[in-house]
Nucleic acid binder design. Structure first.
Length: 422
RNA sequence: GCGACCGUAGCUCAGUUGGUUAGAGCGCUGGUUUGUGGUACCAGAGGUCGGGGGUUCAAGACCCCUCGGUCGCCCCA
């Protein structure tokens, strides 16, 4: 018989367990709590969408669409894509379900996204995001609310230290187009001073040259035309209202005139919460206004704003591993007491008390596995319906509370013997 | 798509300038021992050294390819 080759996990995917999983779950739980505080409704969406959902909204020329999507033909011959981001799918759902009737709508989602990229720190092929969107609100107050919520989320996660909000405006469509034309003209005049990467960006996404990391590009990029000179009156007013709202809410921000977003659909507000603690991945949460997107999907002109944050990135920034629930094990002090111990354990669990039980029958082995399971205390079942409590680790005070609560639920007839372990 | 470093038992790693039957700790299994209980000790299982090809009398160690991992570029959350 040939040896069976164990299949490997797909590149760029993760099997999360232990502390990694706890951190991940903590981020999601915190997001779920905070988004409710702001009245954002939950949403569950398909992981697969027609390819057109993304190619039309993100822009054919973007890296995401042109070379990073997991697209395939299904058995019926339709082109299907594993979602590389949330916004486009949300916009599609908004249109196909006729949610215009609920506008303005505040929505939140979280789940896996897929992008075929080279894995590295904070970047995976299957990664996860939390996402919040407001669809159908053209007012700057919507942008402000999203940013205030993001700010509170980061604070509640305890990672706002060292994370700064960078803010910019891309202007309305006429402003953006005029600025873009000026940039292209300017960069073409200085082609000779640009890096190779930036020359190709000039063709595909000239705005990107502005935040190039290549030192060669910096002098040219730093002297490039600035959006402020091309902003219409309305665009200026809009941006002013957003910054005023943030100031009123006490959210710290800094202007970064070179901040542009990677996807084509953004207008007006663009923002990123950035950190230097994630290696090459500086952005922890990013988003902006995308008033043109829904039209690109064949819908009516609909204003919208939103942001997304990488759960893995947030999880890596959490400092202390999240606390765990205190627990103890019920141990049979002799093999023949095992059934008795099981009865007590089951009673406690039905009353909502978390209890560890070993699968072994040997008392010594039971203690060993209980310690391995990281319990805080041991509750021994002894002949004559006697109970004995031993403290293993953690706060003895908290353990006493836990045991007291547990004893209130123990089957009738049991007596606790004195003894506090060590 | 490009670049750098890395890939030895379940885990963390040793393995001298290529040379006899590939090692340790932890973990796992079994046993002995132990103060009402995180002990110590003994034994055992477990590796075709990521995979394939090549150089050599001889390769885990050298070369090539390939697959993974890590980090960076690009891009992005």
């Amino acid at each position: 018989m040939a040896k069976i080759q164990t299949p490997q996990a797909v590149r760029g995917t993760q099997d999360m367990f232990g502390e990694t999983e706890e951190r991940f779950a903590h981020v999601v739980a915190t997001f779920e709590r905070v988004r409710r505080l702001y009245g954002f409704k939950g949403l569950q969406l398909p992981v697969i969408e027609p390819t057109a959902v993304f190619s039309r909204s993100l822009g054919e020329a973007t890296d995401v669409v042109s070379k990073e999507m997991y697209s395939f033909e299904d058995r019926g011959g339709d082109s299907i894509t594993l979602r590389p981001e949330f916004t486009a799918g949300i916009a599609r759902a908004y249109l196909t379900n006729g949610w215009q009737q609920f506008a303005p709508m505040k929505l939140s989602v979280h789940g896996p996204l897929f992008r075929y990229e080279r894995p590295q720190k904070g970047r995976y092929r299957q990664f996860h995001q939390i996402d919040a969107e407001i669809i159908g609100a053209a007012e700057p107050a919507a942008d402000v609310e999203l940013l205030v919520m993001a700010d509170q989320l980061l604070k509640e996660l305890g990672i706002h230290e060292g994370v700064t909000l960078q803010l910019n405006t891309l202007g309305d469509t006429p402003s953006r187009d005029a600025w873009r034309a000026a940039l292209v003209g300017y960069f073409n005049e200085h082609k000779g001073m640009l890096s190779e990467d930036s020359l190709s960006r000039l063709e595909k996404n000239p705005l990107r040259i502005l935040d190039s990391k290549d030192p060669k590009d910096r002098p040219v990029a730093d002297a490039a035309p600035v959006i402020d000179d091309y902003l219409s009156g309305e665009a200026q007013d809009f941006f002013g209202a957003v910054t005023a709202g943030l100031d009123a809410a006490g959210v710290a921000w800094t202007r970064n005139a070179a901040l542009v977003r990677g996807l084509d659909y953004y207008r007006h507000t663009a923002f990123e919460f950035v950190t230097d603690r994630l290696g090459a991945q500086g952005t922890v949460l990013g988003g902006g206004r995308y008033d043109g997107l829904i039209e690109n999907l064949g819908g009516p002109a609909t204003p919208a704003v939103g942001w997304a944050a990488g759960i893995e990135r947030l999880a890596m920034l959490l400092d202390a591993p999240t606390g765990r629930e205190m627990t103890f094990a019920v141990v049979a002090d002799a093999p023949e007491l095992d059934e008795e111990a099981q009865r007590v354990a089951n009673k406690l669990r039905r009353e909502g008390v978390p209890v560890f039980r070993s699968f072994k029958t040997n008392p010594k082995r039971q203690i060993e596995s209980a310690r391995k399971a990281n319990v805080d205390g041991l509750l021994f079942i002894r002949p004559g319906q006697q109970l004995h409590i031993t403290h293993v680790q953690g706060s003895p005070y908290a353990l006493r509370d836990l045991i007291t609560k547990a004893l209130a639920h123990v089957p009738d007839g049991y007596q606790a013997a004195s003894g506090d372990g060590e």
